[in-house]
Simulated scan of single mutants.
Amino acid sequence: MDIELVQGDITEQPVDAVVNAANSSLLGGGGVDGAIHRRGGPEILAECRRLRDTRYGKGLPAGQAVATTAGRLPARWVVHTVGPVYSTSEDRSAVLASCYTRSLEVADELGATTVAFPAISTGVYRWPMEDAARIAVEAVQGASTGVRRCRFVLFDAPAYAAFERALADARG
């Protein structure tokens, strides 16, 4: 799989599937989640409400993923995943890695070959960027998937630099 890094806006990525760093309610929020819901339009929220009314009455658990339409985004689908809140007293790295691997599994089920990821859990969930980048790159590289191109879309230069270092380290 090709892995590429882009500094920019995830809502502008022309890929098969955009991954949303969602909250467990699936009903929108701040950061990436809010941007995807605003730009994607009401179709995304409508599907998220249906998911809450049927399969995820208590919300989507951290580390899991589910797909909806991409609405008005230049993608076909949005894969919503809930990252863990960072903790200094409990290692939640496996849950963060699961966000990436489960998102790729959902992308495979959809037939997606190109996927754009944000830096999951690094915003209000306070995961340190360097560690989050390492976990993300390792999870994607180790995944068994039909996805051919994975793009990490980083909001700013420090995030881009952290992912650039993690990718260089992973490639040896």
Rank of each mutant, 00 (worst) to 15 (best):
M1R: 05
M1K: 08
E4W: 08
Q7E: 15
D9L: 10
I10H: 00
E12T: 14
Q13Y: 09
A21V: 11
A21G: 10
A22I: 00
S25E: 11
L26T: 04
L27H: 06
G29C: 10
I36A: 04
I36F: 01
G41C: 13
P42V: 14
I44Y: 00
I44P: 01
L45F: 10
E47R: 07
L51M: 06
T54K: 09
Y56Q: 09
G59P: 04
A67E: 00
A70L: 09
G71E: 05
G71I: 07
W77A: 00
V78H: 05
T81G: 04
G83P: 05
G83A: 06
P84M: 06
S87G: 06
R92I: 02
S93I: 03
V95D: 03
L96K: 01
A97G: 10
T101R: 10
L104R: 05
E105T: 15
E105S: 15
D108T: 11
G111C: 12
G111E: 03
V115Q: 07
V115K: 01
F117Y: 10
S121A: 14
T122D: 01
V124L: 15
Y125D: 03
E130T: 14
D131T: 15
A132S: 11
V137A: 09
V137C: 08
A139Q: 05
V140I: 13
A143S: 14
A143C: 13
G146F: 07
R149S: 12
F152Y: 09
L154C: 12
F155L: 11
A162P: 08
D169R: 15
